[in-house]
Design a binder for these strands. Structure first.
Lengths: 230, 230
DNA sequence: ACCTGAACACCGTTCAAGT
DNA sequence: ACCTGAACACCGTTCAAGT
C-alpha cells in the first residue's frame, strides 16, 4: 500500500518517510491524513504535520481543503463510504444483523479514524444511504414510518456506543491481552464491591465481537416482539 | 451561581470576567475549567486560557494538576460523581430504567462536559459504583455473572450512544427548533431516497427524551424476555 | 511549598506576494 | 491556478529562578 523511499536521508519524525515532491490533490491529502491518523493517532494529524509528511508547505493544503475541521469531515465521509450495504434477504433478523455488522466492518477497517464517524454528524448524502437501507428493512417488516425512525435511532445508538467502546479501548482490553488483564482484575477485586468482585473475571476482559452480537441480538429481539416477523 | 465583578475594566476575552487574585486549589481549577467548558465549549479550555480566567500564571496550574489530559479526567470524574444512584425497588424494569435515567441526568447537567464521560474510560472508583448498582439489579433478577456483564455492557452501549447524539447535537436538532427543522426537512426530501423522504418529518426532528425512553424500553424488554421478571 | 518568567517546540489560519 | 514566506495569535510543558 505504501512504499519506502530509500533515497532520502534518515528522518527525525516518527512514522513513514514523507512523500517526495508530489502533485497535491484533495484526495491525496485526505488519504495521507488517514494514513497518518492510523499510525500515529488522530491528534497527530495537524495541518503542518500533514504538509510536512507530504513534502509540501502547510499553506498549500488550503488550496484543496477548507481547514482542519473540514479535513476531518472528509475523513469521516471516506470511512463511511467504505460501508458495503448488504443485499436484503427480507428476513428481519438477518437484515438488521447484516447491516449493523457492515457498519461495524467499515469502522473497524480504520480503527483510529472511525471515532470520527461515531461522533460527528455529517449531513452529507453518504450518511443517508445506510439510513435508507435500515428504513427499508423496518418498513418491510411492518413498522410505520415514525416507529421505524425510533427503531433506527435505537439500533444506531447501540451500535455507536458499542463501537465507541471497541475502538477507543484500543488493542488493550481485548481478550488476548497479557499483563493488562491481571492488573484490571486485581483493581476490580480491590474495589470490594460485592458484585463487581464476583463478576471481575468477566469485567476484566472484553471480546468485542461477542459483546457486539449480544446487544445487537437484544435489540433485534425486542423489535421482533413489537411486530411479528414473517 | 457566579457573580460579576464590576470593579474590573472591560475585558477583551469572551465569557465571564476573570477571577481576581485567588488561592489556587485543585478543586477551584477543576470547577473553573468546567464553567469555562460549559459556556465556551471544551475546546476552549486550554491551560493558558484557564489560567488567564483565574487571574494566574499558566504554569501555576501545574502545581495542582498534572496537565491538560488529567484535568479533563478530573472533569470526567466530577460529572460522573454527580450521578445519584436511585434506590432499588426490586422491580427489574423500574430499576434499570431509573438508573439509566440517573446516568442521563448526571450527563445532561453538564451538557458540554458530558461527552468526556461518554468517551473516556476512567479506571477510577467513581466509575465502579454505578457498575455495582447495575450488576446488583441484574443479579437480583436472576442473571448469572457473565450474562449480567453482557447485559450491563449492552445497556451501557445504548445509553452512551443515545447520549452522545443528544449532547453533541446541541441545542439544534431538538423539536422546538425553528428554522433548522425546515432546512433539514428539505435536505432529506432532496435525497429522493424513498423511505428517507417518506420518514423525513420524523427524521428532521428529535425529541431526545422520547427517543431515549424508546430504545431503553427495547433493551429492558429484551432482557426481561431472557429471564422471567418477578 | 507555591508561584512565575523565559524558553522550546509546536499549533491553525490569513494575507500578500510570487510563479 | 496553485504555491509559499512571513506573520499573527495562539497552544502544552519544562526548567530554573524567585518568594
Amino acid at each position: 500500500m505504501r512504499e519506502a523511499e530509500p533515497t532520502r536521508p534518515a528522518e527525525p519524525r516518527r512514522g513513514r518517510p514523507p512523500k517526495g515532491r508530489v502533485v497535491l490533490t484533495r484526495k491525496l491529502i485526505v488519504t495521507e491524513a488517514m494514513a497518518m491518523a492510523e499510525d500515529r493517532g488522530l491528534d497527530s494529524v495537524s495541518m503542518r504535520g500533514l504538509a510536512r509528511q507530504l513534502g509540501v508547505d502547510a499553506m498549500s493544503l488550503y488550496n484543496h481543503v477548507d481547514g482542519r475541521e473540514t479535513l476531518l469531515d472528509a475523513i469521516t465521509e471516506f470511512v463511511l463510504a467504505g460501508m458495503e450495504l448488504p443485499p436484503t434477504t427480507r428476513q428481519f433478523r438477518n437484515d438488521v444483523y447484516a447491516i449493523a455488522q457492515a457498519f461495524r466492518a467499515a469502522a473497524v477497517r480504520y480503527p483510529r479514524c472511525a471515532p470520527l464517524v461515531l461522533t460527528r454528524q455529517l449531513g452529507s448524502f453518504v450518511a443517508l444511504a445506510p439510513v435508507e437501507a435500515v428504513l427499508t428493512i423496518l418498513r418491510d417488516a411492518g413498522f410505520p414510518p415514525q416507529r421505524a425512525v425510533h427503531a433506527l435511532r435505537s439500533v444506531l445508538a447501540y451500535v455507536i456506543g458499542a463501537l465507541l467502546r471497541e475502538l477507543s479501548a484500543g488493542p488493550t482490553f481485548s481478550g488476548d491481552n497479557l499483563g493488562g488483564v491481571e492488573k484490571r482484575l486485581s483493581e476490580l477485586e480491590a474495589s470490594e464491591l460485592p458484585h463487581v468482585v464476583e463478576a471481575a473475571p468477566f469485567l476484566a476482559v472484553c471480546h468485542h465481537d461477542d459483546e457486539f452480537r449480544f446487544g445487537l441480538d437484544l435489540m433485534i429481539t425486542a423489535l421482533e416482539a413489537q411486530f411479528q416477523p414473517r
